[in-house]
């Protein structure tokens, strides 16, 4: 049995340590404060597409966090100023060559930043971490990507148009049980992402409102878009950022709607995080936040083709 052995090379372990040092020095120079928040919380993420691990002991149930978003926003509400965190997070069922259910996230929040300013900072950090990025960043709106690839406007295309597009472009996927968002996700992940250049960062911005999560939204040309971005190297998604929604009512509405969505999908609903919502009643400055998967950054640094090769003890041998 060799399952006791680490999955990484010493070189990869050195690269990980170096990456963490670089990140800390990057934020130190910018006076962004490193913080810690709980990994085991009383409330869980309501996002219907993310599943939390549940820990039960006697009468207590706690949930492993899937990102430190809620408690970090509680810190922002208490005047913490700019903050970042490097922590382990857990997402049930996310397993594959780019996914390990336990992984390392870098999450940071910048006050008085627009998401466009934050995109610049993400690019600055990633270029410092990954010298192999030789070409200029590309920034596309979600809409442009769909218009260019399918001549389809993702914000207003009919359900039938999306079904036809999926049937024509993705082999062997039953469209029957797919929602509007599922169809868009399928097209993006199967048909659009594979075209992204692997020598540069690609930013996708301005998502359909159905994919806003906790991002703020704005009206444009008669439809609403979510002020969100994702960053990729090649087709590898590295991170996800928002213009943060700071309004209490809308945050509450989002969590509630996500729980409704959970019911529709016959998933357990989650207790709303009242501490988070209470914090959202405070006046919070406009801010932008982003989370980056550090194991994937390390995959780029070490030229490994699976996430399991950059994690000392991945899921199957953890």
């Amino acid at each position: 049995m060799n399952s006791w052995k680490p999955n990484t090379t010493q070189q990869t372990r050195l690269l990980r340590a170096q990456m963490l040092r670089h990140i800390r020095s990057f934020f130190d120079k910018k006076k962004v404060l490193e913080v810690e928040t709980p990994a085991l919380s009383q409330a869980a993420n309501t996002d219907p597409y993310i599943s939390s691990f549940e820990c039960q002991k006697e009468k207590q149930t706690r949930y492993l966090h899937t990102s430190p978003e809620y408690p970090m926003k509680r810190l922002l509400a208490a005047n913490s100023g700019d903050i970042y965190q490097i922590c382990k997070v857990w997402r049930y069922g996310e397993s594959g060559k780019n996914h390990n259910p336990e992984f390392t996230l870098l999450e940071w929040y910048r006050l008085e930043f627009s998401y466009h300013q934050l995109i610049k900072e993400v690019s600055e950090l990633l270029h410092q971490l990954i010298p192999a990025l030789s070409q200029q960043d590309k920034i596309y709106t979600y809409e442009d990507l769909f218009l260019e690839k399918f001549a389809l406007n993702p914000h207003i295309a009919s359900q039938q148009d999306l079904i036809d597009c999926v049937s024509a472009n993705i082999k062997g996927l039953q469209t029957k049980s797919l929602s509007r968002q599922d169809l868009l996700d399928a097209l993006l992940s199967h048909c659009i992402e594979p075209d992204f250049n692997d020598k540069c960062l690609t930013f996708v911005i301005d998502y359909p409102v159905t994919q806003s999560a906790l991002a703020s939204i704005r009206k444009e040309q008669g439809y609403t878009i979510a002020e969100r971005f994702e960053v990729y190297i090649g087709q590898q998604e590295l991170g996800n950022g928002y213009q943060e929604e700071t309004d209490y009512q809308r945050n509450k509405h989002i969590l509630y709607t996500e729980n409704q969505e959970r019911k529709k999908k016959q998933l357990d609903t989650m207790k709303l995080d009242q501490n988070f919502l209470e914090a959202m009643k405070q006046p919070i400055p406009e801010c932008a936040g982003v989370a980056i998967g550090l194991d994937r950054v390390l995959m780029c640094l070490s030229n490994e083709d699976t996430i399991q090769k950059v994690i000392n003890f991945p899921w199957d041998v953890a």
Binding site: S95, H99, Q181, D185, A186, S189, G239, N240
Partner: peptide
């Protein structure tokens, strides 16, 4: 061969 595909937020697929 099984590949797990998931956009940053949203529906995951097994290809």
């Amino acid at each position: 061969e099984n590949e797990f595909v998931k956009p940053g937020k949203g529906q995951a697929f097994n290809r």
